[in-house]
Design a protein around this nucleic acid. Structure first.
Length: 773
RNA sequence: UGGGGCGUCGACAAGUGGUAAGUCAACGGAUUUUGAUUCCGUUUACCGCAGGUUCGAAUCCUGCCGCCCCAACCA
């Protein structure tokens, strides 16, 4: 396996919190069983990936299991094609369901038995209302519905009727089995929802065995129940369904009852996610298929060259919460680049070639350069032979007849370095009859070969190139966002929302020979252009096709004036409504907020109390952190003085500084500081003395104790939690929680646990979690 | 005008009474034979609003406001 450092501690999102709580209370005996239950009626997309990573990830994290279950209760919509693609996609994402691959249709028989149980209990009835009648009698959100005429049929009659339904004696839509709950219920879902309907349809799996099929609400809770799911995680729109989920399970005898938990589904800017719209793109031919590299489907992303690792990292970075939100696609792109940066060896390729002839290069001479595959800051070794000759191609965009300001590339009379090779000067520009530049005649500075003694001469720019005689032709497919508007769902039509330039096919590109010999699944970087890989379907050794996975960031292009689409005009500065707190803050107080780094409320007090301010200043002079000193004076010392002068307190500025520094150095928490302060003010002891007497020093504490009672008292042995952590990662969360628990126990309120406080190292930027495959 | 949810920096998102993490984006700067990467720094988040409780509130209470979901024999 990889030698990467262990994953950074994940955030304890609310679902992890629920599971932690359940594990503490022993609700499920420490078991975690989740499931990912797609309906096999379409391809999985990045939104599903979030759910997959959540469900499978949680199971893995907690040593449980996650089932893959096809929610195939609607024979008219589902298909084996999708069953297969879903399995492939989940597996490709790096997850394993082991033996636990199920179909809701496996449980149809049991479900119908449960239906009979409800019928016999008078909790379900066969209803002969038409769809329209049912709709009409359901009422509205503000008015109750009216009971069905069949609502009070005797259980035995219902049982007979239901068996007729199941036996195929009744035509489609003739009747349904309904839950008998409450037609006046405030939750519309509870107004006698249908449980089973008649569909004389061929099911992709059960064939013609059944002509009745259960509906979602009835089927889903039972599928979960049968499989022993503990945490049934679904998206927010099912919140209203939870009451029904619980109702079915509560009204059946002796069934396992999982907990349904809802989270916000993923929405991504510049992306559509609904199956309907994705299907439309495919059907209308806007894309080449479900696996078109511009599609947000797993299949599309995979074909594009995006790795499973970057998708998993993305899922972790976006978090899990209950607030509807739209993640900006830049975050996803950042994950993709981040992954590819250390994965992709660097090669040279020219998309739109412009001929360059080196006038002073020895005729016919070919030099084989030894060119590193990795930049200096990627810790990987390796190089390839890169042929250099007197006849080259460079990127057309890297030459400008009249260079704009700040141009680093080639221009008439200008110099540029050829990557891994020499510095050249453009002496002549050859144009054709139409005036188009067709060739550059350049002289090469033979002393400047990369790596040679005199190579350190600096020029502004370095450009990529290929040797004409050695380059290999290739097709480049340059993909960019499918939609040009941030919220395509809000757009009036596809026509206006679609990005007409989402795919640019560049034929006649030239790649260096090494690019043709890379393993088929290798991700490459064509320097200065982007990350690519050979299209898995269309690329052949004799006809290379490279997909651009994602471009490199380009701060030069970004800084240039935008071309055609009018740049957003700056909003006329509208008068900001002045906030009340800002209004009442004097300029002097305002200055204090900046200088001391304190809240306006604190600054105001200090501004109006010269003695207090002087005290703070004195403490700062003694080495106290400004904000901490100010907050302590205002929030603690002033109230303690009860109106008297601060000098009457038995703590002087030096003492305050000492106390504050204990906190900022992480010796004690801010909560403990209160305690210490109280002691100081009471007895006149120095802060250090109090800390010593009470044994509060951080050094005397175990690193991650969960035993709150021990925390403040004495040295503790490594706790269970600590000893279980063998991965060397920081027990950040357990520490934080332990402190919180301790304070709750002692009635002290919250302790600080920040990078400056309780000794939990802050997560360094760049130290990203990399969930193991 | 019912019920169920949700509102913390431009975008995500921690935070669960002790003085607002992190990531992405943006903007500076350093290093760079990729205008990449990396590094360092910056960007006044008063926590939807208004009251209240408290020495102290994003966290508790009250009242408003806004957004999302629910009236398929879809899932």
């Amino acid at each position: 396996m990889s030698t990467d450092r262990p994953a950074a501690p994940e955030s304890v999102h609310f679902i992890r919190a629920i599971i932690d709580q359940d594990n503490r209370s022993g609700k499920w005996g420490g078991q975690v069983v989740t499931r990912f239950p797609p309906e096999p009626n379409g391809y999985l997309h990045i939104g599903h990936a979030k759910s997959i990573c959540l469900n499978f990830g949680l199971a893995k994290e907690y040593g449980g299991r996650c089932h893959l279950r096809m929610d195939d209760t609607n024979p008219t919509k589902e298909d084996v094609e999708y069953v297969e693609s879903i399995q492939e996609d989940v597996r490709w994402l790096g997850f394993d369901w082991g033996e636990h691959f199920y179909f809701a249709s496996d449980y149809f028989g049991r479900m119908f038995s449960y239906a009979e149980e409800l019928i016999l209990k008078g909790k379900a009835y066969v209803c002969f209302q038409t769809e329209e009648e049912m709709r009409a009698t359901r009422g509205t959100v503000t008015e109750p519905g009216t009971p069905s005429p069949w609502r009070d049929t005797a259980p035995q009659d219902n049982l007979r009727l239901f068996r007729q339904m199941c036996a195929g004696e009744l035509p489609d839509g003739h009747c349904t089995l309904r839950a008998k709950i409450d037609m006046g219920h405030a939750n519309m879902k509870m107004r006698d929802l249908p449980m089973v309907r008649i569909r004389h349809a061929h099911h992709h799996r059960t064939g013609d065995q059944f002509c009745v099929y259960p509906l979602y609400d009835f089927a889903h809770c039972l599928s979960d129940s049968v499989e022993g799911i503990t945490h049934s995680i679904c998206t927010l729109e099912f919140e209203n369904n939870r009451e029904l989920y619980d109702w079915f399970l509560d009204n059946l005898d002796g069934v396992h009852h999982p907990q349904q938990i809802e989270f916000a589904r993923l929405r991504l800017s510049y992306t559509v996610m609904s199956k309907r719209k994705l299907l439309a793109l495919v059907k209308e031919g806007q894309v080449s298929g479900w696996d078109d590299p511009r599609m947000p489907t797993i299949a599309g992303l995979r074909r594009r060259g995006v790795t499973a690792e970057s998708i998993r990292e993305f899922a972790e970075r976006i978090g899990v919460a209950k607030a509807n939100s739209t993640v900006s696609v830049e975050l996803f792109e950042s994950c993709i680049r981040d992954d590819l940066n250390t994965r992709a060896p660097r090669l040279l390729a020219v998309a739109r070639p412009l001929k360059v002839t080196l006038t002073n290069w020895p005729e016919g001479q070919v030099e084989e350069l030894d060119a590193a595959l990795w930049p200096h800051d990627v810790p990987k070794e390796g190089s390839r032979a890169l042929p250099f000759s007197g006849s080259l191609f460079i990127e057309r965009d890297d030459f400008a007849l009249t260079p704009p300001k700040g141009w680093h590339r080639l221009a008439p009379g200008g110099e540029v370095r050829l990557r891994h090779a020499y510095i050249i000067r453009c002496d002549d520009v050859v144009k054709d009859d139409s005036g188009e530049v067709v060739e550059l005649r350049c002289s090469v500075d033979l002393d400047t070969r990369s790596g040679s003694a005199a190579a350190d001469r600096k020029v502004k720019g370095t450009i990529h190139w290929v040797s004409a005689a050695h380059a290999v032709p290739a097709e480049l497919r340059l993909y960019s966002r499918l939609f040009r508007v941030e919220d395509p769902d809000a757009a009036e039509s596809y026509a206006e929302a679609l990005n007409p330039d989402s795919l640019e096919i560049v034929r006649g590109a030239l790649v260096e020979p090494a690019a043709a010999t890379m393993p088929p699944d290798a991700r490459l970087q064509f320097e200065r252009q982007g990350y690519f890989w050979a299209d898995p379907k269309d690329s052949r050794p004799e006809a290379l096709v490279f997909n651009r996975i994602i471009s490199l960031k380009d701060s030069w292009a970004k800084a240039q004036p935008a071309p055609a689409p009018a740049a957003k005009k700056p909003e006329p500065a509208k008068p900001e409504p002045v906030k009340p707190s800002a209004l009442s803050l004097s300029p002097a107080a305002e200055a204090l907020t900046k200088r001391l780094g304190v809240a306006p409320t604190v600054a105001r007090v200090l501004d109006e109390d010269a003695a207090a301010l002087a005290f703070v200043e004195a403490a700062i002079a003694e080495g106290a952190a400004p904000a901490a000193a100010a907050n302590t004076v205002v929030n603690d010392l002033l109230p303690a003085a009860k109106g008297a002068a601060l000098s009457t307190l038995s703590l002087n500025p030096a003492g305050l500084a000492a106390l504050v520094n204990l906190v900022t150095k992480g010796e004690i928490s801010s909560k403990q500081a209160k305690e210490v302060l109280a002691e100081c003010l009471g007895g006149g002891e120095s802060p250090a003395a109090v800390v010593k007497r009470l044994g509060l020093s951080e050094a005397s504490r175990g690193p991650g104790s969960d035993d709150a009672g021990c925390l403040l008292a004495a040295p503790v042995l490594p706790s269970t939690k600590t000893s279980l952590r063998q991965d060397g990662s920081s027990p950040h969360h357990s520490t934080g929680r332990a402190f919180a628990a301790a304070t709750r126990l002692l009635g002290l309120g919250r302790l600080r646990c920040s990078s400056a406080g309780a000794g939990a190292p802050a997560r360094r930027p760049g130290a990203r979690s990399t969930p193991a495959a």
